[in-house]
Amino acid sequence: MVLILLVAIWQLSCWLFEIPKWLLPAPSEIWLEGITGWGNYRSHLVSTVKLSFMGLLIGSGVGIIIAVTLHSLPKLREAFYPIIILTQNIPIIVLAPLLVIWFGFGMLPKIIVITLVCFFPITVAALDGFRHTTAELTHYMKMAGASKKQIFWKVEWPYALPSLFSGLKIAATYSVMGAVISEWLGAKEGIGVFMTLASSSFRTDRVFVAIFLIMILSLIFFALISSLEKIIVKWKPKGEGKN
């Protein structure tokens, strides 16, 4: 509802104040450009989807591996947790060109950028989930003679899953952003490339098309992770049954 209202206000103001198209195109113009130019975008879109998806996959993998490693080695955890937070303080825009210098224009620097933005929410969420496993459950498992491995796989891992999925949802939306940023660095195809081209030729309407494509893509990724969560986490987390 709010969205529709906002779009309506936008459209109206464009008409009333006769804002030039290169400054701020009206939603109708963006829509039109989106429809007619679809043939141009398609290959860009496909390439960005591929890149974000691969980045998300690798980023999640790295995030989970870091979380599991740090969780099972508490000493490492103390040493590395601050470093992990620091990695998030490096502005990606500054780091990205450096990565290109180091690794060239191929896939590698792009994947590294996406991984860098994706792994953090996953690692933090998973670590939190592992750590906040109810003590009575781990006590029971220990007294029943369960090994560390059993406690991890039978209790801590399933317990952390809902939290892990929260992290994954954030990472999924970041991954699209990360892909676009990495495409700015230099790529043949992708929404990022398309965006740079459009803005340097003052095709503001196309820039907006790109922005909306990014938003829609993020939403789709988010929805995919949500449905995956519904399939995997069948039990009700934080159910009121336990008191």
Binding site: E136, L137, H139, Y140, M143, A144, G145, K154, V155, P158, Y159, L161, V233, K234, W235, K236, P237, G239, G241, K242
Partner: peptide, 14 residues
């Protein structure tokens, strides 16, 4: 070495 029923049921919710 023992079989134990804790004070709270401690069942795995999943």
């Amino acid at each position: 070495a023992i079989s134990y029923t804790p004070q709270s049921p401690s069942l795995l919710p999943w």
